[in-house]
């Protein structure tokens, strides 16, 4: 693993060894895309329109169980797309959240597409901000804009893209609106054409900030290339066993550094 950033902006960023461990076969694909999102945001519909598969999606929070995979081609690149279980958060202890979290943290997908419900943006941003703490390569898909329009709700995608530092694509996946745009943005982020500068939590966390800073310094010293030390520090302070184990075994150090800019 080389840390030669400049030469290889277009190289896949995913962690092949960890992906294999997570059960993802990458032999016929160039890039891997993770699909995250709250339950009932039309995530499966987005998955279907990206891959052309047909899976039933009811108007129920939490219908998809487990992990579904599919593939698509765009601009002569082959993408594998992994539909993660719908979750509200990546911090809790449920199995679903662990599956989603582990995939994004250890698999280091080339792009993580986060699907949010335009009518419930505020609540959905919880997950978005958490994902952006873990990964630098993400595309936000603001879905159900048709429904939002019906309720007279409009989301300023440019302003949102600016404050989050990632591409934002408004879609109405049921009608196929915005899917081409989404594909293009996935491609651009995967190939390094678009360089994300993701938003990181800035506001002080009550009574915690000092502890985080102290721990953060130690972690960055031990693992200088780790992209998300602050997040690791928070997880350690919460007693997250999986992260503790991966720090102890040094496995966390195997995660690839971010390209293009230093943390």
């Amino acid at each position: 693993m080389t840390i030669d950033n400049q030469n290889c902006a277009t190289c896949p960023a995913h962690n092949l060894a960890n992906l294999v461990k997570l059960g993802i076969d990458m032999s016929n694909f160039d890039y891997v895309v993770a699909l995250a999102g709250n339950p009932n945001t039309g995530k499966s519909t987005v998955f279907n329109s990206l891959t052309g598969l047909k899976q039933h999606t009811g108007n129920w929070p939490g219908k998809t169980v487990g992990r579904t995979e599919g593939g698509f081609q765009y601009a002569e690149k082959r993408f594998k797309i992994v539909d993660l279980p719908g979750t509200y958060s990546l911090l809790s202890t449920s199995d679903d959240e662990e599956v989603a979290r582990d995939f994004i943290l250890f698999g280091q997908p080339d792009v993580t597409v986060i699907v949010v419900d335009a009518t419930r943006l505020e609540r959905n941003l919880n997950l978005v901000l958490q994902v952006l703490e873990i990964t630098d390569r993400a595309v936000l898909c603001v879905n159900l804009i048709d429904e939002a329009a019906r309720h007279k709700i409009y989301v300023d995608d440019r302003a949102l893209s600016k404050s989050l530092g990632i591409p934002v694509v408004p879609t109405a996946a049921r009608q196929g609106i915005g899917i081409q745009e989404l594909l293009r943005n996935i491609h651009d982020v995967a190939t390094g054409k678009y360089i994300c500068k993701p938003h990181r939590l800035s506001s002080e966390i009550k009574n915690v900030s000092n502890a985080v800073d102290e721990l953060n310094k130690k972690i960055s010293k031990a693992f200088p290339h780790l992209p998300n030390t602050r997040w690791i520090a928070l997880r350690l302070l919460e007693g997250d066993q999986k992260v503790i184990d991966s720090v102890r075994s040094g496995e966390i150090g195997n995660l690839k550094p971010v390209e293009n800019f230093d943390e």
Partner: peptide, 18 residues
């Protein structure tokens, strides 16, 4: 506390773009 500050930020951002 973590969720409280995440939501604070989320509602700031949402307030600006929605």
């Amino acid at each position: 506390s973590i969720l409280e500050s995440i939501y604070k930020e989320a509602s700031n951002i949402a307030g600006q773009v929605v």
